[in-house]
Design a protein around this nucleic acid. Structure first.
Lengths: 245, 245
DNA sequence: GCGGTTCTGTAGTCTTGCATACAGTTCGCC
DNA sequence: GGCGAACTGTATGCAAGACTACAGAACCGC
């Protein structure tokens, strides 16, 4: 259900992952950070950047990824889709992060899709290239471990939320997560997209938002939700997580 | 919801993880396999094995893990628990695998618990020790990446199943997964435990099993389910995965 | 064998959210 | 400015499953 957001002021409730790799240092790629000067450039020289238009599919449900992708700029949506067309957004990968990690495994797993959420630039690296890289630069391997451990953590949190919270609680958590910095609003996502993140129907989501609106917790606009009473949303999340009675 | 099973004849439907690290080679620890002779012994000498009784808690929901654990023998249950006491089994770690990987991250995340499912023996390694180890032996790091990528994959499959399948479909998938070798039965788990794996009430699970029984797909005994018609269960899984109509 | 404990069967109520079906609205494009 | 597409509001039936509440059955230890 939940996307998996990774951000500094992180909300552990939903486990959504957005803005992954937001803390960038020297080279702008999370797993290559801290390499000796010049190394990064040498590595990247081997795999020239490729620009893709919004909507480009990197791999889809039928064929899993066979490469690892480094996102140089733009945003990528990771998702799963059911036979009947229902979609579940697993996460949004943003600048500096990688995706397609299943390709690191010998046996390519099918099931996940990745599509460009907006125009993006990526480096494409083969499984073998990445393996060699990690063996040669242990710090890179350690960084990858770090990122994967974090994503696993988030995925399990999502699982937990899916298991314990009802739609109301999940939506409340999502809103808090999509506005971690407390900017006061969430913009750019349609109800359908939000629904895909929490794993419910669009109608159920609209309905839930409407209830939030009537209770004064939020205000809704087209592709926009303004958070009026953050603490109320927080209370909803707590109440709905496991204490159904 | 789903446990995460890792086994050779793997069932991609549920994404359950059981029998992780079942393919063991030289040293018996998945991440240390393939090290030069003597290296493994040297590493382990630093962290003597510790025996724990069944039911021992390694870390609980309140305080996340601060160490990495290598399971030498026995089985460990990873779980999450809600405020109201509902439990969700994330996975069963078995011989040769590690757990507590969140400790590899700087910020210790809370939420997951780990408890000995049976009498077990573990090595306990500090975060720093593991980091140093990975830097010194890149092959170890690469192995860890491999395992984490696989677990992430499984966790996302569980998420997907949780989002798209109803309880009936999930239970069918669970049974198939708990009997990957087609032994013909699943033994040793109470209805409560099975329910914790699929993320539903015990009553709902009993009910579902009963329906399976009446349809001739299974036979149920105390802590035992015999699978009579495997293909029927498979059909149920497919039908229920996304095509609710 | 007895008593407690753990496990399983059953039943009934009630809420949630899916499925379906439209109507209205805003937006972008021509 | 108008048309079509994408987005949002609303309503209704309906089934799944949570929650509650017991009762019987199998096991365990003494």
């Amino acid at each position: 259900m939940e996307m998996i957001i990774e951000s500094k002021t992180e909300n552990s409730v939903t486990g959504l992952l957005v803005d992954e790799g937001s803390v960038l240092e020297s080279c702008g790629i999370e797993i290559f950070d801290g390499l000796p000067d010049g190394e990064f450039e040498a590595i990247v020289a081997e795999v020239p950047p490729i620009s893709v238009a919004k909507g480009t599919t990197f791999y889809s449900s039928e064929d899993g990824p066979s490469d690892l992708y480094l996102l140089r700029s733009g945003r990528i949506e990771l998702y799963r889709q059911s036979a009947s067309g229902k979609r579940l957004t697993l996460g949004i990968i943003s600048e500096g992060a990688f995706f397609g990690e299943m390709s690191l495994l010998g046996d390519v797993q099918t099931g996940t899709g990745a599509v460009a959420y907006e125009a993006s630039v990526v480096h494409v690296m083969s499984r073998d290239y990445v393996s060699a890289l990690m063996l040669q630069h242990p710090t890179v391997a350690v960084r990858v471990v770090d990122v994967l451990a974090r994503r696993l953590q988030k995925a399990r949190e999502s699982l937990q939320e899916m298991a314990f919270n009802d739609v109301t609680g999940r939506v409340a958590g999502l809103l808090l997560l999509l506005d971690p910095e407390d900017v006061g609003f969430v913009e750019g996502s349609s109800h359908q997209e939000l629904a895909d993140m929490v794993g419910c129907l669009r109608e159920s989501l609209s309905d839930t938002l409407d209830r939030f609106k009537r209770s004064g917790a939020v205000t809704v606009g087209r592709k926009r939700v303004d958070i009026r009473d953050r603490s109320r949303l927080q209370r909803i999340v707590v109440q709905r997580s496991g204490a159904r009675s």
